[in-house]
Design a binder for these strands. Structure first.
Length: 564
RNA sequence: GCGCCUCUAGCUCAAUUGGCAGAGCAACGGACUCUUAAUCCGCAGGUUCUGGGUUCGAGUCCCAGGGGGCGCACCA
């Protein structure tokens, strides 16, 4: 058993015994007196990966391995005990214990006196302590960042949802599992891309700023393009541009992108959310059902290693094939009441009211039918199930059903009582599409703000000819909720929409009046809470855009705290 | 937008019927040569979300406003 290296010089003599190790190269230390923080630090091992390295499984308590490593991370626990000290060093792979000894570790007292949350880089030998914990016995170490603020109760973390969402960086460190959720999110996106690429799909990016917000029933956010002297809308769907690309010859195309809907916030709705849309030429909605179940199951298998999950305490089996059933079949199963477009509209309305579903005499039968389904059946469907064949009346972009008049070839995959997406055999006929959108325009004129807008550029594209095409939209956030067993969409969105904390709007107004908009200044002066200062800094980019050119006459709230 | 609940130290939470606003963790100072939410000693920390009101007296009760949670509405 080798003696522990006592100095950096001695440490370097260890190199021959660990071939992969190179001397740590950090720079800047000691050069600038005012900032001893180095500009870089080289690690040889990740903390969590080292902690679970099987090569050290047989290392007995009290033994040294002879392997020298360099690790970095944040101090999450610190137990200084006179002339020895223990610290938990955590990076994004996990944690390894640092073991410091006054006669081995340089600047021992300083290390033992660091605060929780500080970032530290350390070099030393891998050892197992007498109490059996695999550790790095620190010889050299360097402070990489000081944590001037703490991360809450070290055992209980932070619970306040407001704090968790507004200061996600704190949440990520303070609460076990939060980072894992977002690592899964990243893997889900990667898996979707890989699986679709394997099937010959290409990924594209289409505009976020739209002159006409269409492709879904939703109210848009409005913004203003100064150079064009024109209002624009943030997209509410990806659909119309992607179909234009099918017209252009991209036979299998998809986009994963943020869409924005000017609606309420709830545990299942964030005003900006991530949508996957894909279009496959020569396919119908049956093909898309097969693709959907294979994609979702494939992602689950790739990310979680299984297709049978537990969601909110209930088993959920994503293994294909999924059940296929019509909307009417499912309503009949759930309520025992026969519904459908074959009934006279009056009778359908009567049955709706019988089921406790409020409908207006102005509502068309299609709307009534969907209303019945959504109010009585959808939330009870655990699924997965493909809910098939929606009324044409409420589906302006879907193609007529090949054998059921009044219906379109459309389905929604429903899992755990929620729609995961929406898909159709796409309507390709430009004349029929125009008629459908004109119907929507009439509804809009009659006061339905969510009726779909008529997009001439889309219609013109269809006139060039779109082949039979199957399309699918998936709510990626909701898919991630299923795979991470989360009930609230805010748990899978890093920075969910929150109301701006107001209260000092008067200061914001005066600040923007003297032209400090764009440096995060509007709220800075007036807010005593430190957290709010970071908030305004985070709004910088948005403010700069808004502040370009003329001074924006923003209202206090909009001006001071815009989130993106 | 409506209803119910909620807001106390940096964090997690106490505070009797309306009667001096507290603890643990973190931070700060100190002790300790194998800790595992270490332990021990010490110190500091407050616009009880904001503004009114009732009262001899308000964290507590009332009114208004703000933030948050949940539900409804909205939402394919």
């Amino acid at each position: 058993m080798a003696h522990p290296p006592r100095s950096a010089a001695a440490l370097r003599t260890e190199r021959s015994r660990c071939g992969s190790w190179a001397p740590p190269t950090w720079s800047g230390g000691g050069v600038l007196v005012s900032s001893p923080i180095p500009y870089r630090f080289e690690t040889t091992r990740a903390a969590g990966e080292l902690a679970s390295d099987k090569a050290f499984e047989d290392l007995a308590p009290g033994e040294s391995s002879g392997v020298v490593v360099s690790v970095a991370g944040r101090l999450m626990r610190l137990r200084a005990q006179g002339r020895v000290a223990f610290a938990e060093l955590r990076d994004w792979t996990g944690a390894i214990q640092l073991f410091a000894q006054s006669d081995v570790t340089e600047r021992f007292d300083e290390l033992a006196g660091r605060a929780l949350g500080d970032w530290v880089g350390a070099v030393g030998e891998v050892v197992r302590t007498k109490r059996g914990e695999l550790s790095v016995r620190v010889v050299e170490w360097v402070l990489l960042a000081e944590a001037r603020r703490g991360f809450g109760d070290k055992w209980r973390g932070v619970n306040d949802p407001d704090l968790r969402y507004r200061q996600r960086e704190v949440d990520l460190w303070a609460n076990e599992g939060v980072r894992d959720t977002f690592l899964v999110r990243s893997k889900v996106l990667a898996a979707i891309r890989r699986l679709l690429s394997e099937r010959g799909f290409i990924e594209v990016e289409t505009p976020v700023l739209h002159q006409v917000a269409s492709g879904a029933h939703a109210r848009p956010f409005v913004t203003h393009y100064n150079s064009l002297h024109s209002d624009f809308y943030l997209r509410i769907a990806l659909e119309l541009h992607l179909k234009r690309l099918v017209v252009g010859g991209f036979e299998r195309v998809f986009e994963i992108g943020r869409v924005f809907r000017n609606e309420g916030i709830s545990p299942r709705h964030n005003p900006e959310f991530t949508e996957l849309e894909l279009y496959q030429a020569y396919a119908d909605y049956h093909d898309v059902m097969a693709l959907t179940e294979e994609l979702v199951a494939g992602v689950s298998l790739e990310v979680l290693g299984k297709t049978t999950l537990t969601y909110q305490g209930r088993p959920l089996d994503l293994t294909p094939p999924w059940r296929r059933a019509t909307l009417e079949e499912l309503v009949a199963e759930q309520t025992g009441v026969e519904v459908g477009l074959h009934l006279p509209p009056e009778e359908l309305r009567r049955r709706a009211r019988e089921l406790g579903v409020a409908v207006s005499d102005d509502d068309g039968p299609g709307k009534v039918l969907v209303e019945i389904y959504e109010k009585t059946t959808e939330s009870s469907l655990w699924g997965p199930v493909f809910v098939m064949d929606y009324p044409k009346e409420v589906s302006p972009l879907a193609r007529d059903h090949r054998s059921r008049p009044g219906y379109v070839e459309r389905f929604e995959p429903v899992i755990a009582g929620r729609e995961l997406g929406n898909a159709f055999s796409e309507l390709a006929d430009p004349d029929e599409q125009r008629r459908r959108l004109l119907d929507q325009a009439a509804e809009r004129a009659a006061g339905d703000e969510e009726a779909m807008a008529l997009d001439e550029e889309f219609l013109r594209a269809l006139e060039h000819g779109m082949p039979p095409t199957g399309g699918l939209g998936i709510g990626v956030d909701r898919l991630i909720m299923l795979l991470t067993d989360q009930a609230n969409i805010r748990e899978v969105v890093l920075f969910p929409a929150l109301r701006p904390p107001s209260g000092r709007g008067d200061v914001a107004v005066s600040a923007s009046a003297v032209g400090t908009v764009g440096v995060g200044g509007p709220s800075e002066g007036g807010l005593s809470e430190e957290g709010s200062g970071e908030e305004s800094a985070g709004a910088d980019s948005g403010e700069e855009l808004a502040g370009e050119g003329s001074a924006p006459p923003a209202t206090p709230n909009e001006g001071s705290r815009r989130r993106d």
